[in-house]
C-alpha cells in the first residue's frame, strides 16, 4: 500500500491526471492526522473528539506568519520560513495539547469525549473571532512555506514531503507501540487501575501521548495549509474531528497502517459519493450508523466490545 502511494505522483503524471495527485495529497495528510489520533484513540483507548482543532492550529501557524510577512505588522511573527512555520505548528499544537490534555484527563469516559469536543470547538470560535485573519471567511495563503531545497509550489514535491513525514510518523507509532511507553499506554487502556497499582503514573503516560498526538496533527495541519493554500476556521469544527475518528475506526483502531487505510477509504468514499449525490452525507451517515451498530455487535449474537 505504502509503495503504491510512494509512486503515485509518477503514475498521476503518466496518466495525465493531476487531480489524482491532489486527492493523494489530501489522503496522505489526512492519514497523518488520523495516525496521530490513532496514538491516543487506538493505543491509548481515549475517545478524543476534538482532534481537528490541532489541524487548525497547525494551519494557522503557517497562515498567520505568512499573512504578516506580506501585509506587515507583528514583525516578531512575520516569516515565510517553512522551518519556522513547522516548528511553530508543532510547538503550538503540543502546548495546546498539554494544557487541554491536563484538564481533560482529569475526567474519563463520556466526560472526556465532551470536554475534548468543547476545547476543540473553543479553537473554532477563537479562530472565527480573529478578524485580522479573515474571521469566518478564512485566510488565503499568498505564498507557501519556503523550505531549503524543497519547492512546495510544486505539487509533487509537496506530496513527497508529506509522504515522507507520514512514513516517519507510522514508523514512530510502530516503534512506540512495542516500546515500554506504548505497552504502558495499552496497559492503561485495558485496566487503568491495575497500571496505577503497578506504580505507573497513568495520567502522565496518557498526557504524553496526547501531547505527541497534538504535535503531529498540528504538523499535518501545516502541510494541509500548504496544500490547499486556503484555510478557514471550518477545518477545526467538530464534524471534522468526527471524520478523523471515523478514519481511525474504519482502518482498525490501534493498527499501525489502519489510519492510511481509513483515510484512503474516506477520501474515496467522499469522492465517489459526492460526485454521485450532493447529499453525500446521507449515505455516509447511514453507513456510520450501520458500522457502529455492527461494531457494537448488534447484528451478531456476540456481546459488545470493552467499554471505554
Amino acid at each position: 500500500m505504502m509503495a503504491a502511494l510512494a509512486l503515485l505522483p509518477l503514475i498521476a503524471q503518466l496518466a495525465h491526471q493531476p487531480f489524482w495527485l491532489d486527492l493523494a495529497t489530501r489522503l496522505v495528510i489526512l492519514a497523518m492526522a488520523a495516525a496521530s489520533l490513532n496514538i491516543i484513540l487506538g493505543l491509548g483507548g481515549l475517545v478524543s473528539f476534538g482532534h481537528a482543532a490541532f489541524l487548525g492550529i497547525g494551519a494557522y501557524a503557517v497562515g498567520i506568519p505568512v499573512h504578516h510577512s506580506i501585509y506587515g505588522g507583528a514583525s516578531w511573527l512575520a516569516s515565510d520560513n517553512g522551518l519556522f512555520h513547522f516548528a511553530l505548528a508543532v510547538g503550538a499544537g503540543a502546548l495546546f495539547a498539554l494544557v487541554t490534555g491536563a484538564l481533560s484527563l482529569r475526567t474519563k469516559g463520556v466526560h472526556f469525549i465532551m470536554i475534548t469536543m468543547a476545547f476543540g470547538q473553543m479553537i473554532y470560535y477563537l479562530l472565527e473571532s480573529l478578524e485580522t485573519y479573515g474571521g469566518n471567511d478564512g485566510l488565503t495563503l499568498d505564498v507557501r512555506s519556503a523550505l531549503p531545497g524543497i519547492d512546495l509550489d510544486n505539487p509533487a514535491q509537496l506530496y513527497w514531503l508529506a509522504f515522507v513525514i507520514l512514513a516517519g510518523v507510522l514508523v514512530m507509532t510502530w516503534r512506540l507501540r512495542d516500546a515500554r511507553f506504548g505497552l504502558a499506554l495499552a496497559g492503561a487502556r485495558e485496566n487503568a487501575r491495575r497500571m496505577a497499582a503497578l506504580g505507573h503514573d497513568v495520567t502522565r503516560i496518557r498526557l504524553a501521548a496526547y501531547v505527541l498526538a497534538g504535535a503531529i496533527c498540528a504538523l499535518a495541519g501545516a502541510l494541509m495549509a500548504n496544500s490547499t493554500a486556503f484555510i478557514t476556521p471550518a477545518m477545526t469544527s467538530w464534524p471534522r474531528s468526527g471524520e478523523l475518528m471515523f478514519m481511525v475506526i474504519l482502518g482498525g483502531a490501534g493498527r499501525i497502517l489502519g489510519p492510511v487505510l481509513g483515510a484512503g477509504l474516506f477520501v474515496l468514499l467522499e469522492e465517489a459519493l459526492s460526485s454521485f449525490t450532493t447529499y453525500w452525507h446521507l449515505p455516509f451517515g447511514l453507513l456510520l450508523i450501520l458500522a457502529a451498530l455492527w461494531q457494537a455487535g448488534v447484528f451478531t449474537t456476540r456481546s459488545g466490545g470493552a467499554r471505554t
Partner: peptide, 14 residues
Amino acid sequence: KSHLAQVLATFGLI
C-alpha cells in the same frame, strides 16, 4: 455498549 460505538452512530445520525 462502548461509548465509541455510541459516538459513531449518533455522529452518523447527525
